[in-house]
């Protein structure tokens, strides 16, 4: 299939591994899904210490289950990416370890305290939900299919995050204050989650033209702000003065781009942000430490715990 035909046919769940797709499509889809899969892994990496630090057994169980779900999402997504025939899962995981794999800006920042957990589990996951819900209509069918399960489980994660936020914001003065401080620190990063405004986004046009991406950065950011500004206020959080956000007459929001640190954002996008590098390298060290296990079981991939390269679905 040539690119023009792909663009004409592009629609929800239109393409599967049975289609002979142009290289441009397969590469763009791989880049997008790999980014998504990597983000699941690095998000899980960031949250894992809070399984231990959770202040009750029930919270601990919920956190462990959430981290496990995210690894499961990574597994599904790598599979959806692999089925494009561009890169294997091993290559993607190795690239992630080596600092070549890209992932969400928010997961480059360290997370040090329990009061920060809802910033990821409620706001970032809530933002991700917006995007993921639209991806159930993406043109690469295995990706859309993976989104069905991911969205279902993410719904629970956002509730878990919201519950932690509600608890903190109805707790002691100290808890409320620490949570507000964490919110102020994370809020600009959360706004940047959606990337630069449409006129500055590099990959959007092509991804939209072949039906991979369903909504633009601006549309998604608007939908998120529309839903989450009232929620943040409901729990007693004050929206920081910056970045300045103006509500337009039509109910959409205009974010003052100059109030956001785009140098930092693009440094992160290149995997050059120092604290984020610690996380990338920490995960790399963990992966290298169990290389001997993978070497030992190589050629023994049929037993539980091993993995053969996935055949195309």
């Amino acid at each position: 299939m040539d690119l023009e035909t792909a663009k004409e046919r592009a629609g929800p769940r239109e393409f599967s591994p049975a289609d002979d797709l142009p290289e441009e499509y397969r590469k763009a889809a791989t880049r997008m899904i790999e980014f998504h899969a990597n983000s699941e892994i690095m998000g899980a990496y960031l949250e894992r210490p809070f399984i231990r630090q959770a202040p009750s057994i029930d919270r601990k169980l919920a956190f462990s289950a959430k981290v496990q779900d995210e690894i499961g999402h990574g597994q599904l997504l790598y599979r959806a990416a692999e089925s494009l025939g561009v890169k294997t899962r091993e290559e993607m995981l190795d690239d992630l370890a080596n600092g070549d794999g890209k992932f969400l800006n928010c997961f480059h920042y360290p997370m040090e305290s329990w009061v920060e957990t809802p910033m990821i589990a409620f706001f970032v996951d809530g933002a991700a939900m917006r995007r993921q819900a639209t991806l159930r209509r993406t043109s690469w069918e295995p990706y859309a299919h993976a989104m069905d399960k991911v969205c279902f489980e993410e719904g629970f994660h956002v509730k878990h995050g919201e519950d932690i936020l509600a608890e903190l914001m109805s707790g002691s003065k100290k808890e409320q204050q620490l949570t507000q401080e964490a919110f102020e620190e994370w809020w600009p990063r959360i706004i940047q989650f959606f990337g630069p405004t449409d006129d500055k986004s590099t990959h959007h046009d092509f991804a939209a033209s072949v039906g991979l991406k369903q909504q633009s950065n601006d549309q998604l950011r608007n939908a998120f702000l529309d839903q989450y500004i009232p929620k943040a206020r409901k729990y007693g959080l004050e929206i920081p003065d910056e970045p300045r956000i103006r509500e337009r007459d039509d109910g959409t929001y205009e974010v003052e781009e100059d109030d956001l640190d785009w140098d930092e954002f693009f440094t992160i996008a290149k995997n050059d942000y120092e604290p984020g590098l610690d996380q990338i390298n920490g995960r790399k060290a963990a992966q290298e430490a169990v290389q001997w296990v993978r070497d030992t079981i190589e050629g023994d991939a049929s037993a539980a715990g091993g993995h053969a390269p996935q055949a195309a679905d």
Binding site: I41, A44, Y45, R48, I51, R52, I57, K60, L61, S64, A65, V67, Q68, I71, G72, G74, Q75, Y78, R283, A286, Q287, A289, V290, V293, R294, I297, A304, G305, G306, H307
Partner: peptide
């Protein structure tokens, strides 16, 4: 739970996480 996001493969990660949650339960 120390093995979560650190196990040799995604599959073994999921399996041990499962056991951790069982024991916690």
């Amino acid at each position: 739970t120390e093995w979560q996001v650190r196990a040799p493969s995604l599959e073994s990660d999921l399996a041990l996480a499962n056991n951790a949650q069982d024991e916690l339960g």
